[in-house]
């Protein structure tokens, strides 16, 4: 698989290590009332879709960026990649 790195172009997936579902970016509030339940959900439960999956890949043998890669788990076709930093900042309303 070749991952289209937003800064470096197509790179061999071997240069990356895989973490899993991109929802892991959105860590719940550990001080909230229901933190035990939300953390159980966050740490252990997955949608695990057969089809389009947004997932975190770390460019370890590269520029050490975390990417959010969109990939079809039934074909391994890679549909796009973004810097996870941009995704996380956009979720926070774009504030730096």
């Amino acid at each position: 698989m070749l991952i289209p790195h937003p800064l470096l172009g197509l790179r061999d997936a071997q240069e990356f290590t895989y973490l899993g579902d991109a929802s892991l970016i959105h860590r719940p509030d550990g001080m909230a009332e229901n933190a035990a339940e939300t953390f159980f959900d966050y740490v252990y439960l997955r949608d695990n879709p057969a089809g389009v999956h947004r997932e975190l890949w770390f460019h370890e043998q590269g520029d050490r960026s975390w990417l959010v890669v969109t990939r079809d788990t039934t074909t391994h076709e890679i549909l796009g990649a973004e810097l996870a930093r941009d995704v996380a900042l956009a979720a926070k309303g774009g504030a730096q």
């Binding site: 698989m1 061999d12 997936a13 071997q14 895989y18 899993g20 579902d21 695990n48 057969a50 999956h53 997932e55 990939r71 788990t73 039934t74 074909t75 391994h76």
Partner: peptide, 11 residues
Amino acid sequence: YNSYAQRGNLP
């Protein structure tokens, strides 16, 4: 990596 493809890759 997550996969339902029933085939892997060369690495």
